[in-house]
Amino acid sequence: MITVKNAESYLKDKIGEDTDVVGKVWETFKAFCKEQVKGEEGKEILFQCGVYDFTGEELFYFDFVRQFTVYEEVEYSHMEQLHCEFVFNPINELRNLEVSEFYFEEDGDINDYFKDIEKLQQFQIPLKLKPLKLEIYQEEI
């Protein structure tokens, strides 16, 4: 069974070595988002992208996120986010693409969320480009 602690390694194994084909990673990420994670009360998904200078250099970040709310017994403990983050050179056609779209299970069907994301130009344009790299990491927020 998938747990919050092993979610990162589980997703990395699912994605494998094919990390520069954004569409394939997206399909794997979508399938992973439908899987149950032990202790998860509801699915929380985020698609976000934009040009940022987190490292001192402007880059375009194209990020699929699954968020986990962690409880110890019945008390809230913390949140963790598992990122599938593609990084691109910030070419002109990416410069003005910025979006942050959350999905919470109570919002409705997750498949409708995925379809809505796939229609966005912020999703479509980077899908056709080759990323510099993919980073898969989990962090406590």
Rank of each mutant, 00 (worst) to 15 (best):
I141N: 12
Y71C: 05
K128C: 07
L11R: 02
D53Y: 00
K128T: 12
T19A: 01
I117F: 03
F29A: 06
L59P: 07
K128D: 09
Y113D: 00
Q67A: 13
V22E: 01
D13A: 11
L129T: 05
F114S: 03
F86N: 02
F29V: 07
E101G: 01
F123M: 00
D53I: 01
L94W: 05
T28V: 13
V4G: 09
G42A: 11
F86S: 02
T55W: 12
T69F: 08
K133T: 05
G56Q: 10
V37G: 10
I141V: 14
N96W: 14
V25L: 01
Y76V: 12
E57A: 09
L134A: 04
I125M: 04
L127Y: 00
N89C: 10
M79R: 14
P126N: 02
K14S: 06
F64S: 05
F68M: 12
E98S: 08
D116G: 10
E93I: 15
E139W: 15
E93W: 13
D20L: 15
I2L: 15
V22L: 01
D63C: 09
F62C: 03
F47W: 01
Q48S: 07
G108E: 03
K128S: 10
S9P: 04
L94F: 07
D116F: 11
Q122R: 00
G16V: 03
K133Y: 03
F54R: 07
F32Q: 05
E85R: 15
T55H: 12
V99G: 04
K115C: 09
H83C: 15
Q81I: 14
Q48M: 04
I110Y: 12
F29M: 08
S77C: 06
K38H: 13
G23Q: 06
H83K: 15
F29S: 07
Q122H: 00
L11F: 06
K119P: 08
K133M: 05
V74A: 11
E140C: 14
K43M: 13
G39D: 05
H78K: 09
I117P: 00
G108A: 02
L132M: 10
K5I: 11
N92A: 14
T19D: 02
D63H: 06
I91K: 09
E85I: 11
N92Y: 13
P90T: 09
F104E: 01
K30C: 15
Q48E: 07
F64L: 07
V74Y: 14
F68T: 11
F88S: 04
H83Q: 14
F114G: 03
S77Y: 08
E118I: 04
M1L: 10
Q124M: 04
E140T: 14
I125W: 02
E105V: 05
K24N: 15
E101A: 00
E41M: 08
Q36K: 14
C84P: 06
E58V: 05
K43A: 13
I15S: 03
G42S: 09
Y71D: 02
I110N: 08
I136M: 02
E140K: 15
E73M: 09
L129Q: 04
N96M: 11
K43W: 13
V65D: 08
V99L: 04
E44Q: 09
E72P: 05
K119E: 14
L97I: 00
S100C: 09
Q36A: 15
G56N: 10
L120E: 06
E140G: 13
V87T: 14
V37R: 10
K5Y: 12
H78D: 07
V4E: 10
L132P: 06
D109I: 12
Y10E: 06
I15E: 01
V51S: 06
E17V: 04
